[in-house]
C-alpha cells in the first residue's frame, strides 16, 4: 500500500556523483600507474587520512546547522603542538590526551556561545579562533617537537598486516578509532533527538524553535562536537606524524569543508550525512595519491581540491535553483 517513491534529493545526487567520482579516479589511477590498483593503496587512503575523516565528521555537524567552523585546522595543529610539548615535559599520555580533548571541547563551547548567545557571525569568530590557536601554537613552540612517548609510538605503529595476493597491506589501529567516530556520528545524527534537531535547525531555525526544540543547546553543541573532533583528529594526527609543529595543516579547514560538501552536505544546512563526508575525504586522498604518483608539485593537490569544491558548490546551486523553480510552478 505504501509506495516508497524516494525522489532524487540533492544529497543523493551529490553522493552518487561523489561515489562515481571516487571509483572513476581509483580506476583511472590503477590504469595509469603500476602498484596503484591494490588493496594496499585503498587501505592507505584510510591510514593517511584517518585524522581528516574525524575532523570532517565533526565539521559536518556544524555545516548541517548552516554554520561554519574554520578554526579546525588550528585546533588540530594546537593539539599536536601542545601534546608534543606536554609529553616532552614528561606528562603521561593518559593525562595529555584528555587535556587536549578538553581544550578542543572548550574552544568549541566558546565559539558556540559567541555564535548563539552574542550573535557573532560564525565565520568571523571561528576565523579569530583560528588565529588565536595558531598563535598559541607558536607561543608553545616555533620549532617542531618530536614525540617520543611510548604510548604514542605504540599507537602509531600498531597495525594489522596481511597479504593480499603478493602485496602487503596494512591497516593501522587508529583508523578504527576514526571509523568508530563515524559510526557514533551516524547513530547520533540518525537516531537521537539531538541529531534530528541538528537537521531541523539547518532546515529552518525559526521553525525548530517554534516546534519546541532546544535550538540553543544543540547549536552550541555542534560547535563543541566540531572542536572535540578536531582535537581528536589532532591526537590521531600526532600518532601519524609523531611530532608537533606550529605551521602544520595550514588550510586544512578547506579539506574538511570540501569533504563534507563533496559528500552532499549543503552549506545552507539541513541536508547531508557523515558517510558523504567520508567519501569526500577518500576522494581527496585519491587525488593526493595520484599527485604523488605523477610526481607533481604538492600544491596541485590543493588546487585540484579547490577546483572540485568549486564544482560541487556550483552543482548544489544549480540543483537548488532548479528545485526552487519547480516549487514555484507547483
Amino acid at each position: 500500500m505504501i509506495t516508497k517513491t524516494k525522489s532524487l534529493k540533492v544529497e543523493n545526487i551529490s553522493m552518487i556523483i561523489a561515489c562515481a567520482l571516487f571509483v572513476l579516479m581509483f580506476v583511472a589511477g590503477s590504469a595509469m600507474y603500476d602498484h596503484f590498483g591494490s588493496v594496499s593503496t585503498f587501505l592507505n587512503l584510510f591510514n593517511d587520512n584517518a585524522y581528516l575523516i574525524v575532523v570532517a565528521v565533526g565539521i559536518t555537524f556544524v555545516l548541517l546547522t548552516g554554520g561554519i567552523d574554520i578554526s579546525v585546522s588550528s585546533v588540530v595543529a594546537f593539539t599536536c603542538v601542545f601534546s608534543a610539548f606536554l609529553l616532552q615535559r614528561g606528562w603521561p599520555a593518559f593525562i595529555v590526551i584528555p587535556v587536549v580533548l578538553l581544550v578542543g571541547l572548550l574552544n568549541g563551547f566558546l565559539i558556540g556561545y559567541c555564535v548563539q548567545v552574542f550573535h557573532i557571525q560564525p565565520f568571523i569568530i571561528t576565523l579569530a579562533s583560528q588565529f588565536l590557536l595558531r598563535g598559541m601554537c607558536a607561543v608553545v613552540s616555533t620549532v617542531s617537537i618530536p614525540i617520543e612517548n611510548d604510548f604514542y609510538k605504540a599507537a602509531a605503529l600498531s597495525k594489522l598486516s596481511f597479504k593480499v595476493g603478493r602485496a602487503n597491506a596494512k591497516f593501522y589501529l587508529y583508523v578504527f578509532l576514526a571509523l568508530i567516530v563515524v559510526f557514533i556520528a551516524y547513530y547520533v545524527l540518525k537516531y537521537t533527538r539531538f541529531g534530528r534537531t541538528v537537521y531541523a535547525i539547518g532546515s529552518n531555525e525559526l521553525s525548530a524553535g517554534y516546534m519546541g526544540l532546544d535550538v540553543k543547546r544543540v547549536k552550541i553543541g555542534v560547535y563543541m562536537i566540531s572542536g572535540f573532533c578536531a582535537a581528536l583528529g589532532g591526537v590521531i594526527f600526532s600518532f601519524y606524524t609523531l611530532a608537533g609543529y606550529s605551521l602544520q595543516n595550514m588550510g586544512m579547514e578547506l579539506d574538511a569543508i570540501s569533504s563534507a560538501v563533496i559528500g552532499g552536505t549543503l552549506l545552507t544546512g539541513g541536508v547531508g550525512n557523515v558517510w558523504g563526508s567520508v567519501i569526500g575525504v577518500l576522494i581527496q586522498g585519491v587525488i593526493q595519491t595520484i599527485v604523488t604518483y605523477q610526481n607533481l608539485n604538492a600544491w596541485w593537490t590543493r588546487v585540484t581540491i579547490a577546483a572540485l569544491l568549486c564544482l560541487f558548490i556550483v552543482l548544489q546551486r544549480i540543483i537548488s535553483i532548479r528545485a526552487d523553480r519547480q516549487k514555484g510552478k507547483g
Binding site: 559567541c114 568571523i124 588565529f131 588565536l132 598563535g135 598559541m136 607558536a138 606550529s246
Partner: peptide, 15 residues
C-alpha cells in the same frame, strides 16, 4: 607570534 594572538583577541573584543 604573540602579535597574532593579540590581534585575534582584539578581533574578538571588537566583535
Amino acid at each position: 607570534e604573540l602579535t597574532r594572538v593579540a590581534k585575534a583577541v582584539i578581533v574578538i573584543i571588537v566583535c
